[in-house]
Write a protein that binds this DNA or RNA. Structure first.
Lengths: 191, 191
DNA sequence: GTCTATAGGACGATAGAC
DNA sequence: GTCTATCGTCCTATAGAC
């Protein structure tokens, strides 16, 4: 069994990195908020902050992928599946007003130029999300190349709508994305 | 005429904030890279870093809006207009590999929780970009409510596709966005 | 307007006791 | 495994000479 302390550190770091950013989040704040013993950070993460960011990013990506899968699980129609995921994000945003376990865009934007390893982690995470949507499209009868392009576009659209929604403190961009995404998918369903 | 030194500081700050982030960019680096005299920063920006971020964000937003307008200016069809803007972004990204005067997403994500004033600046900038697309849709004969929703979705889609493209060092998301956006617009054109 | 110098604090990281 | 103490660096911001 994994250490509770280590997991708690990762979860706290993951939250702060996602909502405040890596540069604006100090290790001391992570330790304080997580209630973790002060000396234990470099015991669990000998690689320092960079290693912690990597673990935090992977943790966030895993949770987001799980949420996407859960959101799509009980929907028969691919359109409804994607819309259900978006609705879940709208609810989370209305509740919290912050991008917590919804997007790793901030981590990606902070690292894509300075840390190739972390860029790779974020890139892999984005690809995994695209694939979740794409596979769901295929399950709905959409052929492979079109389904993959759709998956990529859905992921782009949602990521952008999340940023616009938190910046405006208004879920209109997410709602618009949920409406319009239907037309992109339905085009392939009836012919 | 505005001071060259002040404008040079703004431009350098704007570039670094956009590509590296606010937290990761020190004032000393801005002064060094801009070649500005070291003592002049607090002369031009008595409000310190926060005031500089605001000026930088507004500068970036203005340039991005100008680029969008220029990209759409010579295209008759709204679809081609948006696609031309996206193609311009693809070229810039292929050339530079960084989000310089293409997106203020990083600034928005770094500030939307911590600084309400800067959040407002970014929100206003996003709205202006949405409006540019929406007005172009109206010019193409699409009625008002639909045009505005389209403008919002186009802006979301592009913003997300930019992030995915830089993270993957691959313009595929931008290309996919350019392809798929056509279907969203054309739906309103013929009926 | 521009410069130097520096205050004063936060940060990442390390060492070593227990 | 955990803790304290601390080093050295970087940062923002200010003070004051020119």
């Amino acid at each position: 069994m994994k250490s509770n302390v280590k997991q708690k550190i990762i979860e706290t770091a993951s939250e702060l990195f996602q909502i405040k950013g890596i540069g604006a989040t100090g290790l001391s704040e992570i330790l304080q908020r997580s209630g973790a013993p002060k000396g234990s950070l470099y015991y669990y993460f000998p690689g320092g902050k960079e290693a912690l960011v990597e673990a935090a990013a992977e943790n966030a990506a895993r949770i987001i992928c799980e949420k996407i899968q859960e959101g799509m699980a009980d929907e028969k129609d691919p359109v409804h599946a994607v819309q259900h995921v978006i609705e879940g994000m709208e609810k989370a945003l209305s509740r919290e007003g912050r991008l917590h376990n919804l997007s790793i865009s901030l981590i990606a934007l902070e690292t894509y130029l300075s840390d190739d390893r972390l860029r790779g982690v974020c890139h892999k995470a984005f690809l995994a999300m695209e694939r979740l949507y794409a596979e769901r499209m295929k399950l709905g009868g959409i052929p492979s190349p079109e389904a993959e392009e759709l998956g990529c576009v859905i992921q782009s659209l949602i990521e952008g709508a999340l940023i616009l929604s938190v910046t405006g403190r208004d879920n209109r961009p997410l709602r618009a994305a949920g409406m319009q995404v239907a037309w992109l998918i339905r085009r392939h369903q009836q012919g």
